[in-house]
Design a protein around this nucleic acid. Structure first.
Lengths: 195, 195
DNA sequence: TAACATTTTGAACGTTCATTCAAAAAAATA
DNA sequence: TATTTTTTTGAATGAACGTTCAAAATGTTA
């Protein structure tokens, strides 16, 4: 029997990048074939349809998002510093030439009227991301406070994701963040637990 | 000579609703013809193309947005109360069955990679909206504070617009808003200037 | 009423869309 | 080497896309 020529990870990454940039309806199969290097037959045998490929790309993106967050927290001197650096990173990302925002957000806005299952899908991913932030905050705050702060964090992140399309950023981004989320100022005794 | 049968205002409103819900690429000319009641020839004679109709719909939506904001402020007992009610309205809107978010935001996210002129266009509209908030805040705050608060307001509004797709809202929405924008708590001596 | 200018009509156009499938190629197994 | 199983190939398909335009209808002006 023949063996697969393509690397699934690479193909999905190319698909993510294309969908992420141009959106679902704005991406043609032609573009996907070119981006992935696959031929129509192979792509359809593997992913069944454009939508099938999209859903796989989307869930992979969502999983990577959570991993990135957790790595950033682990790599920081404290939870608070970690969260701050995540938010600052979002502003930095926005300076890139082909800034694409957040793939999940774009999906939510583009497809909520077309495909209810995708809306549910994305909402679940966001719930996971919020729950992950909540768990992180729980290591330094009381449970009910963590729930509240996680919600704030999600809303602010959505705000940054959209606001960043504007060319002008706040002068002092860190000050801007701290003024909206004042609890990020309090960084006493919140070191990451080791081992 | 023949006279126009259709009402431009009505046609544009239908076009806005259709584009707003399904997006630019997700809306077909068939849908637009059905929604507006126009025939292909008439639509193309009047608007030149799908993109032409879209741009007109978009700028009309943006103008209406600013009008709505200003009416809300004028109809409130104070600037602070007005802004609070605008934010609370956004959360209320989100409860509607066919919640569509913000047409400008959706446009920005969907078309930024396809059409640079639309990106510029939308950015300019957002700049106008931010400037309008800034002018409103200027009636009760110092200029540099108003600039800062207007930016915060825009980011929070973007956040609400996206976060609202999630089915679960914060328990006490007003408390939620006040915790992110604490300056909305200070409502002393900020009455709307009369006549 | 005749001439004119404007708008409406809707069938038809060429293009691009997502998708299919029979045939060829490729590797593993017998 | 022959057989079997899986993958690749890429031309072809029908549907849907945005758009056009000559002819008919409409109402104003001469």
């Amino acid at each position: 029997m023949a063996i697969k020529k393509f690397d699934m990870d690479v193909v999905l990454e190319q698909a993510i990048n294309t969908f992420w940039q141009y959106g679902y309806h704005g991406t043609s199969m032609q573009q996907l074939l070119q981006a992935t290097g696959l031929r129509p037959g192979s792509l359809y045998r593997e992913f069944e349809s454009k939508e099938g490929l999209y859903l796989l790309a989307l869930s992979r993106y969502a999983a990577a998002t959570i991993t990135t967050v957790n790595n950033r927290i682990q790599g920081s001197s404290s939870v608070i510093e970690g969260i701050k650096s995540i938010l600052l990173d979002l502003f930095e990302e926005a300076k890139a030439k082909n800034y694409c925002g957040c793939f999940l957000v774009k999906t939510q806005l583009e497809l909520s009227a077309h495909n209810e299952s995708i809306l549910t899908n994305v909402s679940e991913e966001f719930a996971k991301i919020e729950a992950n932030y909540c768990a992180i905050l729980n290591t330094i705050f009381a449970p009910e406070i963590s729930l509240q702060y996680a919600k704030q964090l999600m809303l602010i992140i959505f705000g940054i994701r959209v606001y960043s399309y504007q060319s002008e950023q706040p002068e002092d981004v860190e000050e801007f963040i701290l003024s909206i989320l004042p609890w990020l100022k309090d960084d006493s005794n919140h070191n990451i637990k080791q081992g």
